[in-house]
Amino acid sequence: MTAHLPETKRKYDLTFARWVSRNVHGGDKLNMCMQCGVCSGSCPLGEQMDYGPRRLFMMIRAGMKDEVMKSDTIWNCVACYRSEVRCPRGVPVTHILDSLSVVAVREGYAEAKNAETTRFAKAFWWSAKKFGLTDERLVTALYYFSGGIGEGIRKGMANQKIALRMIGKKRMHVGMPRKIKRRGELKKILAKAVEIENRNDAAAGEEVKS
């Protein structure tokens, strides 16, 4: 038993649940949650999350803002969508966790640059934007070295064998990075996506600060 009993001394932010409902994508569906546990029970990461979605959602209701914003649950979600697909109440679990990580950074609770998932996402996105394709080698390298030169060398050496085998099986490309044709078109598509997102967010009463 690792029960979180309410401490009488500490303060609970009773407006937090409403704030989440208004500022987190899908947060307005949180009041549908009936605490059945199917989300946490379906999570492939299971015990590797500090709380898991069900507990996190109850903590939001309880107004435990600090614990929610600092939890690793919102960063460790791998977006497999199992919980979202199985939720009997239609709560968009994956979307809520993803959006919570964005607001946690915005609110100054979490340093996005320190989160492994953010660092990987940045590397992935850099390649996708630049070439229109992901280059396994460059994405991996960028991700490894995003934690500093020492970490980059250490991780690179540890995974050398896998990389060589991937090259052998032609799963990792060597030479100049491959690019898609007409990258200008991709740029336009991405610019349009940003425009739409900003417009939607403005309609939702907020602006994306990136």
Binding site: Q35, C36, G37, V38, C39, S40, G41, G52, R54, R86
Partner: peptide, 21 residues
């Protein structure tokens, strides 16, 4: 608990997985 899934365990028995709330 509403179980997440039921799978075939290593022994061949049905295994129920989930979170005890």
């Amino acid at each position: 608990s509403k179980p997440g899934s039921i799978v075939r365990g290593e022994s061949g028995d049905p295994t129920v997985k989930g979170e005890n709330t």
